[in-house]
Design a protein around this nucleic acid. Structure first.
Lengths: 255, 255
DNA sequence: TATGAAGCTTGACGTTGCGTCAAGGTCAAG
DNA sequence: CTTGACCTTGACGCAACGTCAAGCTTCATA
């Protein structure tokens, strides 16, 4: 062993490369007092020796395990026991993992529900009327070529417009369901706002053609009569809620 | 189309409470253009209607699923398809979960290794010699029942004593490593102080039984020979440093 | 009507661990 | 002397708000 500790020192880049990190990180560690350079040149350059490199490696190891820098500081200065810190950290990690699992499950079911909702909305727009008792009336008011018109309208839109419209439809359905579930009254502002959106939605799908009182309320009745709508709108009482809200809206605005 | 929809409006607090969030969040959403108040009073007060409330609920739902606010913005304005966004997000979530699983495993094994490292220190004292060329000599000096004795000694301590001893062991190891890295000479006062502590440590683990010159120096040779020690003491040159220091100490103090 | 308690507003900083310019000094080589 | 590589010190940015701070407004009482 050498008497004079003629220690070899390394530039900041050398250390960074050797440890697989960046010079910015080393400066940061100095800023927070986690790892000081062993020497600073007259020009301000930072120089590190083997001891610092070793400490850095331990820092990076702990950081790779997910520990925070303040915690690492305490561990390295001996204030906190390593295994105790790791065990405590392990708890957090597992907790976080559990939270993620739940979130993943939620996202999966949401995707599922959204997809089914989307399909149903599309059907309702274009061929839903084929199966209802209001077919004749609807055809009378909207024309026998309602579907064809709707199709042209659909094709006339840009991709962005189509995406926007689909999204609106989905939102509308979701919002109706949410409103129905929350037990709102048909006369409530929220429900009426939804009815307004429903009106606009219908009108927009027909080139802004006016929607009559009769058609709007009739549509509401159809929602209750047709089990498909009950299913989509959260059960029979959901459809009832929608119909009632639409009726209130029609009474106040169309007539 | 619609006549003026006289909608009931709510204050910022009302909406926040209704949706289970805070007014600060609502202001933030306005700042980033995610949710604007439906009306702003002459006094600057924000007022929201049912439509805004529903939009907020959708926002919070998506956020609960982990989507970022920019992504939510795109989804709500129809720029991005909901299911596509959710699917993409799901990928990230599962990726993140996998990362967490790996980290959890790493932390677990690290805890394990650290603990066994401590045990190894203890075991090295008592049965580590089974794997070395010094086995016979050690058994001769320490007795064939060295491990059993050590075990009794260990069990005879209180929890506090055990903790203290473990801490001392770790500290000793850390100090050896630091000294080795800093390029100290084996003859230096620091190194000799460490050798002294090493001696005391060995003796303390054997009921104060005397440690011989041969055993002490032999142990030092073993440190160099056994790669496990090299690893613990900061590489081969670390072990060499420890051995040299122990030799110097033995020459001066043990016969 | 005066007043105090709520409730509202607009800043602006803090959080975590650096990445990423920006502007400029230092050093070895050609 | 110039070039290019490497170094320095700021300082902003990120994600999604939490948390004061200072100063209005509104509402319910006394």
């Amino acid at each position: 062993m050498s008497m004079t500790p003629e220690v070899t020192t390394y530039s900041i880049q050398d250390v960074a490369k050797a440890a697989g990190t960046t010079s910015r990180t080393l400066r940061h560690y100095q800023d927070i007092g986690l790892l000081m350079p062993s020497r600073t040149g007259h020009n301000g350059y930072r120089y590190y020796d083997g001891q610092a490199l070793l400490r850095l490696q331990r820092i990076l190891l702990l950081r790779q395990l997910g520990l925070g820098l303040p915690e690492i500081t305490k561990v390295l200065e001996g204030t906190r026991d390593t295994t105790a810190a790791l065990r405590r950290h392990l708890e957090l990690l597992m907790q976080e993992r559990d939270r993620l699992e739940l979130q993943i499950a939620s996202v999966k079911t949401t995707i599922d529900k959204t997809e089914r909702g989307e399909q149903l909305m599309a059907k309702e727009m274009f061929d839903g009327f084929d199966h209802t008792q209001y077919k004749e009336e609807v055809e009378e008011r909207w024309g026998k070529d309602a579907y064809a018109k709707g199709d042209r309208w659909w094709r006339g839109m840009s991709d962005a417009e189509r995406a926007s419209w689909k999204e609106q439809s989905k939102q509308l359905l979701a919002d109706w369901v949410a409103a129905g579930q929350s037990g709102l009254a048909a006369e409530s502002a929220e429900a009426q706002a939804l009815a307004q959106r429903q009106y606009d939605w219908l009108a927009s799908a027909n080139d802004g053609q006016e929607v009559s009182f009769d058609y709007f309320t009739g549509l509401g009745d159809m929602y209750v009569a047709d089990p498909r709508f009950g299913t989509n709108y959260g059960g029979e009482q959901g459809a009832t809620f929608v119909r009632d809200a639409m009726k209130v809206y029609a009474d106040g605005h169309l007539k």
